[in-house]
Design a protein around this nucleic acid. Structure first.
Lengths: 250, 250
DNA sequence: TCGAGTTCTACTCAGCATGAGAATGACGAG
DNA sequence: CTCGTCATTCTCATGCTGAGTAGAACTCGA
């Protein structure tokens, strides 16, 4: 946009087609040590009966606000209750190929959300057919949502490397082991416990100690781990790099 | 988008407002060792006489195609001539706050372009008031374009760290010194020549030797440097990290 | 033609970060 | 009480980085 000239050019009736703008959300959480994504079942054409990412049309609000609204509607969570406010939400990218929606030209701004473990989305009224699905059990999705999900997973995996956003998947207070489980679930591989522990504590601002200790050891034994809170860093420096990422990402 | 239910919801006349979708391009290049951005002078309201990022309405084409078309129009370059095809183009992010354009609701998908040194944009017909401006001499811009430019610069600076995209700023064959000048221009600081040299040659797939040598030494002396081409890596591993980025990016 | 200043390339060396493995001790379940 | 699990700390070898140095090649102006 920007230029009135272009603005007028686009009024050429042959070139101008109505466009709709929507947001779609790739909402990720971790349940039972597995990465899950929030999906909704479509009730109407096109793709009736298919699973899709939650989303909807942008109203008179910012794009960020639209994404948060959709997330709230589909999870049944309400803002102000605390849980929804702890969800990290960031823009992923936009998708606008002609024909990606058979009804009309639709440009979708996709968002990526990291949520702590949330209840099943049954309570809310609008969240009829919403469900958390393990990402490795997601089948075909409506529209180009499979590609959007893939992009979201790529972004999520990359962001864990150089940001402290793994803390967005756990509660307010957490143990190093819980944090390591987040990395394991998102990256799909175990990390060396000792090295992870050293790294997390050595990166400035990643976590800060609460001084407290968990009231109980792990399910299967082990000492009572110490508790930490998210620190004030927004970037990890040095980054916490993925191990097996074969060097030849050519 | 995605849900017919939402689709119908949005037809609520109170909630529905027409939306326009545009692309804006943050096109960067390096001239005389300084980072430049392509700007156009607006001729009409709003912001008549202001400088702005090149951009325009999306037509019946993909978002990527729209961005490349706008770039071609404003630079006066034509596809197929070679130069335009060497430009790296990627989506930056989308901007859609209500009120960012006083005329109507406009959602803009911003793109980031890395171009080798290009001629001044005079030739093309549409590129009336287009100009390459050193990024540190850019004043106020129309709309929210200053914020878009800032985001683009952030992204560009970050991408040089972990991708070989610095090669998109130089010619097909280049010297390590030219590549180092790209980093210096984008990051705004000099790099240790010896360490840079060692690093570039040690990262697999960053550059490959042509076996040739430049026909001439530098302007101010020095031996004839060897020539290289871009390698086949898409990510640098390990990354080439910025030096002075103060550790406390909190 | 010569000398000064520049640049490319290669080395050295110390310090930091990492991967791997192991040791210690606390704790839960049966 | 015993066994297996897990948190936390260490050690050690290796790799990468920043900084400094050095030799040789080359341009330009005197």
């Amino acid at each position: 946009m920007s230029d009135e000239r272009d603005f007028l050019d686009s009024y050429d009736p042959a070139a101008y087609t109505p466009v709709a703008v929507t947001v779609d959300v790739v909402a990720l959480t971790i349940r039972h040590s597995r990465l899950h994504v929030l999906l909704v079942e479509r009730g109407a054409h096109p793709f009736a009966g298919w699973w899709a990412l939650p989303g909807g049309f942008v109203q008179q609000e910012s794009l960020d606000a639209a994404a948060r609204r959709e997330l709230a509607e589909e999870t049944g969570l309400r803002s102000g209750e605390g849980l929804l406010d702890r969800v990290h939400l960031e823009q992923l990218r936009s998708y606008g190929d002609p024909g990606r929606d058979p009804r009309m030209r639709v440009v979708s701004v996709a968002y990526l959300a990291f949520a702590p473990s949330l209840p099943d989305p049954q309570s809310g009224g609008d969240a009829s057919g919403a469900r958390w699905v393990p990402v490795d059990e997601v089948g075909e999705l409506a529209f180009d949502h499979a590609a959007i999900l893939a992009d979201g997973l790529d972004r999520a995996r990359a962001k864990l490397e150089y940001t402290p956003l793994a803390t967005a998947f756990v509660g307010d207070e957490f143990t190093i082991g819980e944090l390591r489980a987040v990395y394991a679930a998102v990256w799909g591989e175990e990390l060396h416990a000792g090295n992870f522990h050293r790294k997390v504590l050595s990166v400035p601002g990643f976590v800060e100690s609460t001084g407290e200790t968990s009231t109980r050891g792990g399910e299967r034994g082990g000492p009572k781990p110490r508790l930490y809170r998210a620190g004030d860093a927004r970037l990890l420096h040095p980054a916490l790099l993925r191990p097996t990422r074969e060097d030849g990402v050519r």
